[in-house]
């Protein structure tokens, strides 16, 4: 018989149910929940600010112990940008893709797959580690690419023949469905949308997908120091999808913005610990790899002017036209 903790009570059970419903939990999220639980237990009102860090830690530990036999685990992580600490309830044996399969259709799953491939393959090259997608990028992935057949590129073959075979089952998503899907993935906490509207993996997804990402995108036979698609922070050792990179293009040292300060304090000079290149802090991983380029800045300046003109045009003639065409 598996041991059930002695003082494990209804409060712990309710806390666990709550955690499972959310998937992630921070101290701030948990305080009102624990306050509600303590209010019931003590039969007098307990406010969220009376809940202490120790209370929270003890509930997390109790839940963690109770579910470990069932191959669930509670892992702690830190948001790469906001530095907010977060606990994630992880299913350690099932593949996240099969987990998604319970609520999503086969077409939606294969779209997610294409999105991950785009994030970590197409938009993640030694020159530009963008690791995020704009909505337009995502819409381009709405349908399975005709060039791909069972994951292998078959460039030589005529597109028509392959297309008929690979697309007979997977007809992809409509553009409107892609938009809905993105919103759903953000709502469920798998994706995050940045201030400039780019989508990247959330802390929860990074924790749950960590092993899967490494297995799918990294080459296990690569030499040490060789460029790999998934790289880890020099300081905290978790995946970097938003951070800084060494100014030397072939060097693989990456660092989170939030880990930077503490890291340089331990170093003698602000130089790359591997290749000793001066660390500029101006070379980026993530969306800033795009937004700091000269081309992007120029396009943005021009784009502003153009979009203003576009709006004026739109007022004169119908303007609906361009929207409608994108849909089918």
């Amino acid at each position: 018989m598996i041991p059930i903790p002695q003082d494990y009570n209804h409060g712990h059970r309710a806390f666990l149910q709550s955690f499972m419903g959310r998937g992630t939990l921070s101290y701030e999220d948990a305080r009102p929940i624990l306050a509600a639980i303590f209010t019931i237990e003590e039969n007098e009102p307990v406010t969220p600010d009376q809940v202490t860090r120790e209370d929270f830690d003890s509930y997390i530990e109790a839940a963690s112990n109770a579910i470990s036999f069932f191959d669930y685990e509670i892992r702690s992580t830190v948001h790469q940008v906001t530095k907010k600490p977060l606990f994630v309830l992880v299913n350690t044996t099932s593949d996240p893709m099969t987990r998604l399969a319970t609520t999503y259709t086969a077409e939606e799953i294969s779209f997610v797959r294409r999105m991950l491939d785009a994030m970590f393959d197409s938009y993640n090259t030694p020159r530009m580690e963008v690791m995020s997608l704009s909505e337009m990028d995502a819409i381009k992935l709405a349908r399975p690419s005709p060039r791909r057949n069972n994951g292998e590129d078959v460039d030589g073959e005529g597109p028509d023949g392959t297309q008929a075979r690979t697309q007979s089952t997977d007809r992809g998503l409509k553009h409107s469905e892609v938009e809905k899907m993105l919103a759903k993935l953000v709502g469920e906490g798998w994706l995050e949308k940045s201030a400039i509207g780019r989508y990247s993996l959330s802390p929860r997804a990074l924790v749950e997908l960590r092993t899967w990402l490494v297995d799918s995108f990294n080459d296990p036979e690569a030499a040490p120091g060789e460029w790999q698609r998934i790289k880890f922070c020099e300081a905290c050792r978790s995946i970097v999808t938003h951070g800084q990179r060494c100014a030397e293009r072939d060097c693989t040292v990456r660092l989170h913005d939030i880990c930077e300060e503490a890291f340089w304090r331990t170093q003698r000079a602000k130089k790359c610990p591997r290749c000793s290149t001066e660390w500029t802090g101006q070379k980026f991983v993530g969306e800033r790899a795009v937004t700091t380029t000269e081309a992007y800045q120029r396009a943005r300046r021009n784009g502003h002017r153009r979009s203003q003109r576009g709006e004026a045009d739109g007022n004169r003639d119908s303007g609906e036209d361009s929207d409608g065409r994108g849909e089918e």
Binding site: G11, A14, S18, G21, R22, I33, A36, T103, K184, G189
Partner: peptide, 17 residues
């Protein structure tokens, strides 16, 4: 008492709302 929405939120699938 333990089933109040203050403790058990609506599931996030597809979204809480």
């Amino acid at each position: 008492a333990y089933r109040s929405p203050a403790i058990i939120p609506p599931s996030r699938t597809p979204s809480a709302d």
